[in-house]
Design a protein around this nucleic acid. Structure first.
Lengths: 204, 204
DNA sequence: CGCTTTTGATTGAACGTTTATTCAAAAAGA
DNA sequence: TCTTTTTGAATAAACGTTCAATCAAAAGCG
């Protein structure tokens, strides 16, 4: 995550340290001390800046989401079809970035806290909604400019978003990988068959 | 889970206690002591029967999967279309059983351990494969008897299985529920459009 | 059948480690 | 000097696990 490259305040240094420790150890083996190891200054300083471990980690998630948002926000979608394809490629792991596995694993570990922790659940509710809205916006733009069929954007977006979540979880919690190309191809086919307008057709 | 209703050995009593404690407290707040509270006999007896907490919980998962397997195995699929619909209804939470939310939350909490724990990862690899195979078998049966189109069973099964995983995770880690009917409808539409054969058609 | 030995189930108490968090005080900066 | 930042040590609780001891039943044996 390049958002952590040049921390400008101590608070940001701590976020970056938390991110690094998270990727190195995964959530379950993440201790405040290990975060401290990735951090120049002392462990107890963390408590001066954040209320505690969970508070810090939620802040870290939030920071990442915010970075992604500002990295990728480009106002109106100019080429919906390409936007959809890029998003699918990015989120169904066609081109896993280096160290991506570690990150996805950590993320899923964090998500595993959400069932019994309201703060995490709030975050993932928001982040799910964020990605859902992104997908929906692409579909709406596609319908508008005629490159997509006249589907229900909310419905299709919900489906695609669910596929994303599922792919992440399976990727992080499974030693199997045979399903990955299958899902990728099938999702592509789904887009072709139900989202993209027939080039020669009437949209039915 | 009715499989735990009549435990016949001490080992099974312990599994049942673990299941109850899991549903009551969720994974993250699950301690061996709390399992003991759901169990007639003493805490340390657990260690006589299982190697430790994780060993017990994996055994518990395995027991549940095995129960599901024997509950539902019905040899060859007689009505593929109905089988697919029942599976989707069951796994995309149309009819959430009472207490189902608690159980799904616990399950997702456990799944969150898999990224950094080989035993859990092994289990979820196997269980994913189990459900994948089930779905694939239904599709194959449908193609065979002409009620489904001639799709690639592995590809379609991978997609549907990923939707299931995603739905579980979103259900357990989110306070939003608007997406649920949307996914349900869209999955149904996916089945209609790409799996089921045209009643009047030639399968293209 | 009686007697002894062995085995497995069961218990309660205790141990030792890990971990998040706090706090008083030093250092730095304005 | 007053405020903010930073530190190292201390705290206190939680938790998984171990262990020595008890007990009942089964097995072996004469």
């Amino acid at each position: 995550m390049d958002a952590f490259e040049e921390p400008e305040t101590t608070r940001e240094e701590i976020l970056a340290a938390a991110y690094r420790a998270l990727c190195t150890h995964g959530y379950a083996e993440l201790t405040v001390e290990r975060i401290g190891e990735e951090f120049d200054k002392s462990v107890s300083l963390i408590y001066h800046h954040y209320d505690g471990k969970d508070d810090l980690l939620v802040a870290c998630l939030e920071f990442m989401l915010e970075s992604y948002r500002s990295e990728t926000e480009a106002g109106p979608v100019s080429d919906p079809r390409e936007a959809m394809e890029r998003l699918c490629d990015r989120l169904v792991l066609t081109d896993a970035p280096p160290g991506g596995q570690r990150f996805v694993r950590a993320l899923v570990g964090l998500r595993g806290q959400a069932p019994h922790n309201g703060a995490y659940r709030d975050y993932f509710t928001r982040s799910d909604r964020f990605f859902g809205d992104r997908i929906e916006a692409i579909i709406e733009a596609g319908i508008e400019d005629g490159s997509f069929r006249d589907v229900d954007p909310e419905r299709a977006a919900a489906m695609i978003n669910t596929v994303f979540s599922g792919a992440f979880v399976r990727y992080a919690t499974t030693d199997d990988e045979r399903w990955i190309p299958a899902v990728r191809e099938e999702l592509r086919a789904y887009n072709e068959r139900t989202l993209y307008a027939d080039p020669d057709g009437d949209g039915t």
